[in-house]
Design a protein around this nucleic acid. Structure first.
Length: 228
DNA sequence: TAGGCCATCTGGTCCT
DNA sequence: AGGACCAGATGGCCTA
């Protein structure tokens, strides 16, 4: 049984996530994965974008360190493919004018920025994982998505706050589980939260069958909506 | 096979 | 000025 401060939770297994869900980061990428080129006149630079797995494949196939990885499906020469841009701005060309610093300098700064961003996202994912581990939800045959994690955490906090307030004889501050919710959990889920209350409590927490007693909050779901 | 979810890259903007 | 933050773009993996 997993212990949560003040609350014990049943129905959570300690199984690990499937291999494909392993949150650990892959080894850092390096400059060879970029298909960026300097023209002879040293005025322009180009680079290729894409997902990590593709670049990892390119690393394996194209040879690390070559700095000249190519692919038949590569878009590095296809100027119709956008190259990012933030805050709603769209770029129509994959070829951009380089600023005053050299392409190599700029590429180095970009790599450093990428590394920092990766680390930032990894720490964010670590926080998500830590949150998943303290949220009571059903059997972990499937890892909670980020949106599910946030929604469940919010609802969990609200439900517990209501329980505490009710135990104190105060009004419950939160109206839980409105009719419409943007998040659904697709599989049937059932779990039980045990806590140390001294008197029975009953609360309609959602469309699920929910019962709060002196020792437990029991929630059973037979359909798609649960804690969302 | 389409859609969901995710990791990563990227450049703009904000903050210290 | 440099790093953090943000959101769009992209591509890979998985599941229904």
């Amino acid at each position: 049984m997993r212990q949560v401060p003040g609350i014990s939770v049943e129905g959570l297994d300690e199984g690990t996530a499937p291999p494909h869900l392993d949150p650990r980061p892959p080894p850092p990428l390096h400059a060879a994965v970029y298909d960026w080129h300097e023209d002879d006149d040293d005025d322009d630079y180009m680079y290729e974008r894409g997902g990590k797995r593709r670049r990892q494949r390119l690393l394996e196939v194209g040879g690390a360190g070559s700095g000249d990885v190519t692919d038949s499906s590569s878009v590095s020469d296809d100027v119709s493919v956008g190259v990012g841009g933030g805050r709603g701005e769209r770029r129509s060309s994959g070829r951009r004018k380089r600023p005053s610093s050299s392409a190599r300098e700029r590429n180095l700064r970009r790599l450093e920025s990428n590394e920092r961003e990766r680390m930032r996202m990894h720490s964010l994912n670590d926080a998500f994982q830590a949150l998943r581990e303290v949220i009571p939800h059903v059997k972990r045959e499937r890892k909670l998505s980020k949106i599910e994690t946030l929604t469940l955490a919010k609802n969990y906090i609200m439900a517990l706050t209501n329980v505490v307030c009710e135990m104190r004889g105060e009004d419950k501050p939160y109206q839980l589980f409105p009719e419409k919710s943007p998040v659904f959990i697709k599989k049937s889920r059932c779990f039980e939260i045990r806590h140390g209350t001294s008197r029975p409590l009953f609360a309609p927490l959602c469309r699920c069958v929910t019962r709060i007693t002196t020792t437990a909050i029991t929630i059973q779901c037979s359909d798609a909506l649960c804690w969302c």
